[in-house]
Nucleic acid binder design. Sequence first.
RNA 1: GUCCCCAUCGUCUAGAGGCCUAGGACACCACCCUUUCAAGGUGGCGACACGGGUUCGAAUCCCGUUGGGGACGCCA
Length: 468
Amino acid sequence: MTVVTRFAPSPTGFLHIGGARTALFNWLYARHHGGEFTLRIEDTDLKRSTDEAIAAIFHGLEWLGLDWDREPVFQSRNADRHRAVAEQLLAEGKAYRCYCAPEELAEMRENARTSGGSTRIYDGRWRDRDPADAPAGIDPAIRIKMPLTGDTTIADMVQGEVTRTNDTLDDFIILRSDGTPTYMLAVVVDDHDMGVTHTIRGDDHLNNAFRQHHLFAACSWETPKFAHIPLIHGADGTKLSKRHGALGVEAYAEMGILPAAMRNYLLRLGWSHGDDEIIATEQAIEWFDLDSVGRSPARFDMDRLLNLNAHYLKNGDPAALTADVMARAGGATGKSLSPDAEARLVAGVPGLAQRANTLVELSEISSLYLYDAPLEMNEKAQAALADPEARARLSALADALENLKLWDEAELDRLVREFAETHDLKLGQVAQPLRAALTGSNVSPGIFEVMAVLGQVETLARLAHATA
RNA sequence: GUCCCCAUCGUCUAGAGGCCUAGGACACCACCCUUUCAAGGUGGCGACACGGGUUCGAAUCCCGUUGGGGACGCCA
């Protein structure tokens, strides 16, 4: 049997971290088994669903690198089918019309809460009542008949066997009085119609699984395998929400998080493979399974994400990183980029990347390669160049540099050290002013590397400006 | 309130009865390396929620307590 998983978000907001992880797990499980990863947009609540949210979900998944195998299903378009199933169940006597008014329901809810707080709200008053009793002028909703006695056990691939006594489950509505299907019905019918074999979702749905299981049974369909993964919590241990600054994945993209880092981070939240921490996606596909998913909720930890991001930045492809920095640099400032900016970045980005945690930081520190002399100097750099003696030294060094034939890092290293030695200076006494002159800052990659990347012409130009 | 789930360093986790004086990673601290900042290296700090069982032996199994979370809509 081919594995078919699904990611089924309701398009009422952006693709948040929790949804992203659910999608990742579904995707990984499908890829691991050579199955299909499908998408279903649960837009049956037309009032809350928006096109922007739908677009945000698609874009978020694309950014994460999670590709889907079929045309996405829009649940709202299947309403006729859902309704037909409800009618069928009604005809078979597995469901019934309920004529309760909203006030009656409210009363029952109040009752249940005050008298013991039972989870079972609806008392089943129309379950066996003669339809002839139906009050005039009330459109009935359709409810499914749930078992009255015994208990139900779900064999969950993550949670294990979970049992609930049936008297805690009431007859829930599958078709509203206005003829629209409820979520519970829509999910079951669509999962069946799409051939979903594994339902991997947040464990806030665990309670729904019991209801859905009986709906599958009523339809004489096989219940898919369930895997309810724990939710992601905020730093305070409660369900991640906007209050925690929970953001959509696009916000992480903007702050310069790499998709590979996000995937790795999300994967390790609740899933593990021994002591392995850095797990490339190909490796994750090979290793991923549901047995190794933990059952306790994990807290979102930005430090960890940043650390992983720094790792992927350090090992990133220079050409790709360069393209990203160029894109972020474009239009950022009024200054025009050096014609050599891109070439310098390709050479300089590896040295820069090990000093950055995000693409934003990377592009900030890239500015030393982006523009030609004269440079903007920060305070520390200005201070380093304030000393006339230091400037005189730089001028002397510039003369030596001008005559250098082979302009590479090793040669520059040799030359500058030699220069320091002849003038009886510590390397730092030469290197720091040099750094200030060449980068406009007191912080940068190794100064010989900077000179090599900049090239002889630009290096001398910057020195000329700094010593003028 | 009722039902369901969970419980190892601050955080993510390893651990499936003896390999555990509990391992790794992030964060933090110190030192080393060093032309700055990082990176890297070395070391340090730091946890089996509690109480009962079961067993020769329990972080691992069972029960209870406590704590946390989730669900209780004609929302999804």
